[in-house]
Design a protein around this nucleic acid. Structure first.
Lengths: 221, 221
DNA sequence: AAAAAAATGTAACATTTGTTACACAAGCCA
DNA sequence: TGGCTTGTGTAACAAATGTTACATTTTTTT
């Protein structure tokens, strides 16, 4: 088990090298392995420790009985899982967490986390920044989902990936449809209409914005 | 200006009474008044201080040029505004903040917040818990918005307010429509269809669940 | 290179939601 | 009480998206 990987995690990476041994000595933690496909946590599970993924990748999703899956995000090692929920009034996982490949996980008890937050400034700063970025991510996701039309979502997605009127699609249409929470044929139709309307052009994964004004208008409907 | 109101704010309320004078002495802060309707912050503004609302109430919303408003939430005093974004990599307000009535606001510099987090355990605990609850709120909101049908959203809304098969509508249909990000006539139609289908009954604000199975099915479509 | 798998394009039709406009009811205020 | 404002019900029609099924292209595997 490669504990040193812990210091590659965003929360811990700014802890000075000379403090790391002391940090580890004082830490109350356990490690565990998960096989690909295994469920690490279920929606509703109580969070009573800080979970940090040392190796592998997991998928956070909300799944419905009818089979509709909303893929919230994929988390790769080394990263913490839901660190914000450790301190919440209602401290339960908001999503299901499933191992996408074989994983190594470290769990640190809440009291141990509290102690380190108070005594180690780099850890505190790292923890706060991570939670902040997480809230930011959720807020962006909210913005995307609250954009009602598929073309609006596409416009936001494209603009967030544009440099100098050029953008690259970093997901397949199938993945994108799941990310947006819409069906794949509907996404395909909307995308092609945007190309037909001369708003963008697209060759494989590489696109150009042809009419920025029209594209921006799509966001606000 | 009623600085003592600060200790009613969730972040600060657990600071022991005997520590409060010292806490205030060490704090770098400013206060300011806002008139009803005045904009306190705009989407994109840089957050370089902790904002705590001492008096009044504000509205956080995303607004589009076409006039569609998605009401994210209403914040009443005494509460902090977007405390998570103070430490974010991209430390900008994700929403517009508008005063709903005359407001009193206190701003505490980031460095001062850092110092107190490290030295005052009650403040640290309060700050973490607040951010956690906030992330939880966002997650719940995400869940609601990712539910595609209006009936599904209504089902979630109702189930979250149900005790012993009875629930109370705590918003008007007009408010609820804005909260869901749908139009008012569509919401009305969906609600009436649920009543016609014998899923729920509703007299004024008071409702009964008549068919729990059907109601739950609406969430997963 | 051939075969298999995954991704994408497409079409007809169903369903849901939005749009607009108006009537009526309920609550509030003078 | 009467008038005003706000909230709700309703309807006809438009627009967007979902559903289903299949063809075609692209990518991956063998």
């Amino acid at each position: 088990m490669d504990i040193d990987g812990l210091f590659l995690c965003p929360i811990c990476k700014n802890i000075p090298v000379n403090e790391r041994e002391t940090f580890l000595d004082e830490l109350m933690f356990k490690t565990r392995l998960y096989k690909k496909g295994e469920w690490i946590a279920s929606q509703g599970d109580i969070v009573n420790a800080l979970y940090i993924l040392l190796k592998g990748s997991v998928k956070a999703e909300m799944i419905s009985e009818s089979g509709t899956v909303l893929n919230i995000e994929t988390i790769n090692a080394p990263n913490p899982l839901a660190p914000a929920f450790l301190f919440a009034e209602n401290n339960r996982f908001p999503v299901d967490v499933v191992a996408l490949e074989d994983c190594e996980l470290i769990t640190i008890s809440k009291s141990s986390v509290m102690k380190q937050l108070a005594s180690n400034e780099a850890f505190l700063q790292g923890y706060m920044a991570f939670n902040s970025d997480r809230a930011h991510f959720l807020s962006e996701r909210l913005k995307l989902l609250s954009t009602k039309t598929i073309k609006g979502k596409l416009a936001q997605y494209i603009l967030a990936r544009t440099n100098n009127m050029h953008f690259t699609m970093d997901m397949t249409q199938t993945e994108l449809a799941e990310y947006f929470g819409v069906t794949r044929p509907s996404l395909s139709r909307s995308l092609l209409e945007m190309i037909d309307d001369g708003v963008i052009s697209l060759k494989r994964k590489n696109g150009e914005i042809l009419n920025l004004g029209k594209l921006k208008k799509l966001i606000t409907q």
